[in-house]
Design a protein around this nucleic acid. Structure first.
Length: 138
DNA sequence: CTTCTCACA
DNA sequence: TGTGAGTA
């Protein structure tokens, strides 16, 4: 059993995760509905979260605090998974013209969103709220 | 006692 | 998102 397996081991119940992330049980369950986290169920239908799940929730917590909405969070998580795929799959499969172009624009969006999210004191959201990134904020 | 689902003066 | 009901 390697590190990855341990990180994905279902260990924590709702109470622990809730306290750890400062998210309400309601919120955590809601995020699960949105597919942001996928905790395993115990025999009693209780949710069991892994370190991996907790990490995701902590990231989500940060984004929520920054005023990012579900669309933005889903987008960020999606691109995060894409990055993981790129790291796991050696060469990026040659993409066709149209697909390629779309991916590029998406990546540019990703970079923009990232930049704004990370270094944002979010008082200058005005610039991004006006643009396409507005759909990622309240 | 804790968590789950469902529903909403 | 909160919260209460009724369970498991």
């Amino acid at each position: 059993m390697d590190l990855q397996d341990r990180k994905s081991m279902p260990l924590f119940p709702m109470s622990i995760v809730s306290e750890l992330t400062d998210l309400s049980g309601r919120q955590i369950r809601y995020y699960e509905e949105k597919g942001l986290v996928t905790p395993v169920r115990s025999k009693g239908n209780r949710r069991l979260f892994s370190f991996y799940d907790v990490d995701r929730l902590l990231e989500i917590k940060q984004l929520i605090d920054q005023g990012v909405n579900m669309a933005g969070i889903q987008h960020v998580l999606k691109m995060k998974e894409e990055q993981v795929r790129e790291q796991e799959q050696e060469p990026t499969p040659p993409t066709e013209p149209e697909v390629m172009k779309k991916d590029l624009s998406e990546k540019q969006l990703h970079q923009l969103l990232r930049k704004e999210l990370m270094e944002s004191g979010y008082q200058n959201h005005s610039s991004i709220v006006k643009g396409e990134l507005s759909r990622f904020y309240h």
